[in-house]
Design a binder for these strands. Structure first.
Length: 568
RNA sequence: CGGUGUGUAGCGCAGCCUGGUAGCGCACUUCCUUCGGGAGGAAGGGGUCGGAGGUUCGAAUCCUCUCACACCGACCA
């Protein structure tokens, strides 16, 4: 490809609304352009990268025995009615009607369509297992699209769906896909971790996320220092503290805390250890009744855990201040479990405290020396808090570390949720009709591109992992218009490289050297070959890797071999 | 969805408070010089200031409405 025939559209300045580095660099390098919030055009350079990722994904899916197909973006509402998701899926589902007033939506995912296909095409257990995938545009009307293609509304996803006669078969395919996903992200040169995850709105029993480690990630993931244990923080259990709760030493005493409405204010004003305080949050249960959730002052509530408590349910609804004031008699900031007549659920760490400080359910007042059982009779214990760095790992080995991750893949064991709702069954060996067992597997293809940049860049621009690079080698002739020797050598190399199967980008523009260097580095092409009169006088060209290291002067005859070796 | 903020040329911004009919840098066009790290000079093209309404002799500037976009928040009691 010649630059003179290619839309090379770089920006010297960073667009003001791009927050994260990948978004900035994708705009500056001319990979994408915004059309509307969360909706982007992939320019020629960007599309080449996207296709590279697709290619790796496609190869690994094929290798894992999945078959590629293509399903529609526009989906009939009636299939979503069947699965029950037409009403359950929130405003993220973009719905509309056609000219006949029939309901349709833009596919945010394709369980309904694939299940519809499977039920009409698969009739016998003998046809199973079967695994289908597609690489296709999805639309989710995100509340808050951000970070460019990282959280876009329209995005490219690889989604796969497997069908099985029994759980054992699903289990087998699930782990085969787990392996395939690891292969994909390894081949793309990403630093990633598979982590245990919540199954969320897709439903099902068992699930792993594939997280690319990056500070700009939107998920917290936890690892054990001493084992393979890794999980999304949403799911990581906090172990109850070891040993017996210390015995009560102090009497319950009320003290005035006017104007102190946060734990931070309270502990600094009265010189109390934050670990000796508890805070009380109120949520609404399914019968609209208040439930008190009690945590140690320095801990955070894990909403997923709270949603899983009996009688609570998702989504978690926090009680508003007015309701709490009416029912309990105090405002936020002065709440506590002592003397409370609502249901009380106490996190294990809070339940392990003796002589703790808590709100007195009277504005501007707190208790010190509070104790469970003695001062609070009816309460239950549960794991409610988010784990923190340094907690013992739930696997029993080591302690937990927390890092940020970008979710680029997610695999689920769905079970029979969709096949039952949509009546997708096969005849088993006994001639009995049984619902097919399903798995589903997603990769955010466009998000992978952004995630790769988050992990691979420097102050000059993108440093593509080789398998993702839009071109493998950049030919940069200097002063080609005037120098016959430069022009001839450049054309020779261009032909030789192209014939050798390399993807070559020839910067044949009549630009100054500095411009060409800066732009090639911004775009991040892995290897650069500079052809200039200076080195040509010695029969050499200059070859450098984008990733770093010194540029080398190489004989023209050896240029191809050197480039290939740098790419290997 | 709530809060905050911003919309002036393709991009980055100034002008707005103290109304008088638009400016800078980059990019773009032409010419000259330059040519190993985002060149220098000269001459140009391009916007009626997100949109609508209002106040005024006069509105980018003041007022009202509206649209769009961004950031923060959506447990931390």
């Amino acid at each position: 490809m010649r630059a003179s025939q290619f839309l090379l559209s770089t920006l010297k300045e960073t667009p003001a609304d791009a927050e994260v580095i990948s978004h900035q660099l994708m705009l500056r390098a001319g990979l994408i352009r915004r059309v509307a919030a969360g909706i982007y055009t992939w320019m020629p350079m960007g599309l080449r990268v996207l296709r590279k990722v697709e290619q790796v994904v496609r190869e690994e899916m094929d290798r894992a025995g999945a078959q590629e197909l293509s399903m529609p973006v526009v989906q009939p509402g009636e299939l979503w009615e069947e699965s029950g998701r037409w009403s359950k899926y929130g405003p993220e589902l973009c719905r509309f009607t056609d000219r006949h007033e029939r309901d349709f939506c833009l596919g945010p995912t394709h369980e309904e369509i694939i299940t519809h296909l499977a039920r009409s095409e698969l009739k016998s257990y003998k046809q199973l297992p079967m695994n289908f995938y597609q690489i296709q545009t999805k639309f989710r009307d995100e509340i808050r699209p951000r970070f460019g293609v990282m959280r876009a509304r329209e995005f490219l996803m690889k989604d796969a769906y497997s069908f099985h006669a029994d759980m054992a078969s699903l289990e087998q395919t699930y782990w085969r896909m787990h392996e395939a996903y690891s292969a994909v992200f390894s081949r793309l040169g990403l630093d990633f971790r598979p982590v245990e995850a919540d199954t969320g709105s897709i439903g099902g029993s068992h699930s792993h996320e594939f997280q690319v480690l990056a500070n700009s990630g939107e998920d917290d993931i936890v690892f054990s220092t001493d084992s393979d244990y890794a999980a999304n923080i949403e799911l990581a259990p906090a172990l109850p503290p070891a040993g017996e709760r210390p015995a009560a030493q102090s009497a319950l005493e009320k003290f005035a805390t006017p104007g102190l409405t946060t734990i931070e204010d309270l502990v600094s004003a009265h010189d109390i250890a934050i670990e000796q305080t508890v805070k009380t949050l109120f949520v609404l249960d399914q019968d609209e009744q208040l439930v008190a959730l009690v945590l140690r002052g320095d801990h955070r509530l894990n909403e997923i855990k709270a949603e899983k408590l009996a009688g609570i349910g998702a989504p978690l609804r926090m009680a508003d201040q007015a309701t709490v004031k009416t029912r309990v008699g105090a405002s936020f900031g002065s709440l506590g479990p002592v003397g409370l007549d609502t249901r009380i659920v106490v996190d294990h760490a809070a339940a392990h405290l003796a002589d703790f400080v808590c709100g007195a359910n009277e504005d501007g007042m707190h208790f010190s020396g509070a104790n469970w059982d003695r001062d609070v009779a009816n309460y239950e214990c549960a794991d409610l808090r988010e784990v923190v760095a340094g907690d013992p790992s739930p696997c029993g080995k080591g302690t937990l570390e927390i890092r940020r991750g970008i979710e680029v893949g997610h695999i689920f064991q769905l079970g029979t949720e969709y096949s039952q709702a949509m009546n997708a069954s096969v005849l088993n060996e006994q001639g009995k009709s049984v619902p097919m067992v399903m798995g589903c597997y997603g990769i955010g293809v466009s998000r992978v591109v952004a995630a790769a940049i988050e992990q691979n860049h420097d102050e000059r621009g993108i440093i593509w992992p080789r398998p993702m690079a839009p071109f493998e080698v950049a030919l940069v002739p200097l002063n080609m218009a005037k120098s016959e020797a430069v022009a001839t050598t450049t054309e020779q190399l261009y032909s030789a490289f192209s014939e050798a199967g390399l993807e070559v980008f020839l910067d044949d523009r009549n630009e100054r050297p500095g411009v060409k260097f800066a732009e090639m580095e911004l775009i991040g092409i892995p290897v650069r070959v500079v052809i200039g009169d200076r080195s040509l006088a010695e029969g050499k060209v200059e070859i450098a890797s984008r990733a770093g290291g010194e540029a080398e002067l190489i004989d023209i005859d050896a240029a191809l071999a050197t480039v290939q070796q740098k790419l290997a």
